[in-house]
Structure formats: C-alpha cells, structure tokens
Amino acid sequence: MKTFMNEHNQMMRLTEAIENIDQIGGGTRTGNALSSMKTLFKMAYRDNVPQILIVITDGKSEDGVNQTARDLRQQGINIYAIGIKDAVQQELEEIAGTKNKMFFVNDFDSLKHIKLQVKSVILTYSFFFFLYFLVCKNVRADIVFLVDSSNSIRPAEFQKIKDFMQSFVIKVDVGLDNVRIGLIQFSSEIREEFQLDRYSTIADVRRAIQEIQQIKLGTLTGKALTFAASYFDPPRGGRPELKQYLIVITDGEAQDSVKNPARAIRDKGITIYAINFKASREELEEITEDQERLFFVQSYDALENIHENLTQIVCEKSQPGKDDF
C-alpha cells in the first residue's frame, strides 16, 4: 500500500505521484484496506476540515467490509464507493453506508463519464460541511434524542438510527459550554443512556451512541415523553435559559397517549422535532404541534438525507435572537 496523505500539497506534485504508483496485483482484500485507513485519517486530521475517502474497486472483496467501513464513518469519514464491472453493488452500499454515495460503471473507460458527477457530489458535501461549521460554531443548546427501540425495528435498521445520530452529532459544536447531547431509549420500558452533562466531546458522545443496545419490546411513546420532560432540568444537565430540543425518532404508532405528555414538554419551552417511518401524521402533530417540525422518511436509508437539514435548522434556530418556527 502506498499513500500520499500530507505528503503533497501542490496539484502538480500530487498528479505526478499518482502517475508514478505501480499496480500491486494479488487479491482483493477491501476490508483490510479500509481498516488501514483509520490510522491514516487520524494522522491527517485537521479541525473543521472534511475527511473524504473514495474507494474504487472492480470486484468482490475477499474479506468483510461492513464493520470496517462503519468504523470509518463513525470516525467522521465520509465514504464514496465506485464500483467497476464485477463489483458487488450490495458491498458498495455497505462501504458507502447509503446508495446515494455509490457509483457503478460497466467498464474502466466509463470512469471518465462519472468524473463530473463524483466531483459535484463531493463539492456539495464539502460546501455543506463548511456551512454547518459556520452556522453551528459557538451555538449553545441542549439536544436530547428520544429513540424508539421497539421490536418492530430490525437490528440493521436500529444501526442506521445510531448512524443518523452520530452524523448529526459530528456537525454540531459539542461541549459542556456549547451543545450538550442526551439520549433516552424507549420501548415498553425506558432506558436512560446518558444525560446532557455526561459527555463533553464528539468522540465520547458518538462512542456512547454506538454502544447502546436495543430493548425490543412495545412502543409506549407517551410514557417516554413523560420521562423525557425532566431530562432538560438542571439536575440532569439541562440549561433552561438556552434553546432546548427533543428529537423523537419512532417507527410506529404509540400504544399510549402522547398528547398531554408532549404538551407538558412544549409548555417548558422545549421544541420537539419528530422523525417518523410508520406512525400517523395526526399522532406526530400531537407531539410536535407543528407539521413543519415533522420529518417523514420512506426507509431507514433515507435518514441520511434529512440529518443535514435537521442539523442546519437546529443550529440556525439556536443563534442568539432567533425564534423557533
């Protein structure tokens, strides 16, 4: 393996270095190659600079890629996968984490036809990365995730919910003086994962999110909302003098009433957003009181498409002098 991270900071020298690399030959151990990227990206890390990995492959990997790719994404690395000819599309999706970040061509000559498309996607991501940095920098707010952990959610789908929360967290200015993050799971029972003043770094919050274990029982959303109300109080690390948000993620209709518990939360000045897969619009409007605060997604993969929008909304509304919509 030959790498150039941090070695070439001029276009001409980088182009020359790429021209001079020699093909290794041998098999296709994509998982092993992905694993080696972890250390390289850590060494090259710079504050407020996006980290992007483009994987180009023409065949099925001889080792697993799912976990190593997920580890990289959890590290904050945005992965794009380009498959050629005999590449396996499911494997490309496992690498990229979503179909929106994978490309496929039938032969090597066709790579030139997707060059502008790939460039456009990456430039768009980089633009929004810096936009989030500018909008979210120095924002002060309390954000609690209230996550449905019922048995109607399959393990792979629950992982996508965790990926969504991790993607959200990496774009805000996490810190005890800035954005505090809390997390509660609910099913037929409620599990307090961590309160608002538990973690002070993005890395710690993301690790804690990844370690949560699904409950897999019923869906008592009303009970969970009642429990969540006190999570924003000072004894739990809350700062009522700042903007406070509850983000509810659920995949089904509640088995109890949500109207009064949600109203009690809103009466404390807390803004509620709801992300839904199957629940009724009427029920979710009872939770948020405003359809503009609802996000309906058709699949768990589509979560990738809304975290950027939700992050920007929360950061903008948390700026001093801004009112909630």
Rank of each mutant, 00 (worst) to 15 (best):
R70Y: 02
K38H: 08
K119V: 00
I24R: 13
K42W: 00
K101W: 13
K38D: 04
V118I: 12
S61D: 07
S120Q: 09
Q90C: 11
G31M: 07
L53D: 01
N20M: 11
L34A: 04
N20T: 10
N106W: 08
E94T: 09
K101C: 05
L53F: 01
N100Y: 15
I84G: 07
G83M: 15
K60Q: 15
E91P: 10
K119S: 10
I56H: 07
S35Q: 12
Q51L: 01
K60L: 15
T57V: 13
G64F: 12
I77H: 02
T28C: 13
M102Q: 14
F104K: 14
V49Q: 07
F41D: 01
R73L: 07
E94C: 08
N78K: 12
T28P: 10
N66A: 15
V65K: 01
D63A: 13
L72M: 05
T39E: 08
M37P: 03
L92R: 11
G26P: 05
Q74E: 08
D86R: 15
G76I: 06
I54K: 03
G97L: 04
E91C: 13
A87E: 03
M102E: 11
Q74Y: 04
A44T: 00
N32D: 13
L123Q: 13
R73A: 05
K38V: 02
S110T: 14
S35D: 06
L111F: 15
I18W: 10
L40A: 12
G27I: 06
V55G: 03
L34D: 00
A87H: 11
A44C: 00
G76M: 04
D71W: 04
I24D: 09
R29Q: 15
E19F: 09
K38A: 06
T28F: 11
L111A: 12
D107E: 15
Q23M: 09
D47C: 00
N20E: 13
E93T: 14
V55E: 03
N20A: 09
M102A: 10
R70H: 04
Y80E: 05
G31Q: 09
E91F: 11
L40D: 01
I18K: 09
T98E: 09
E94K: 14
Q75N: 05
A69E: 04
E91Q: 15
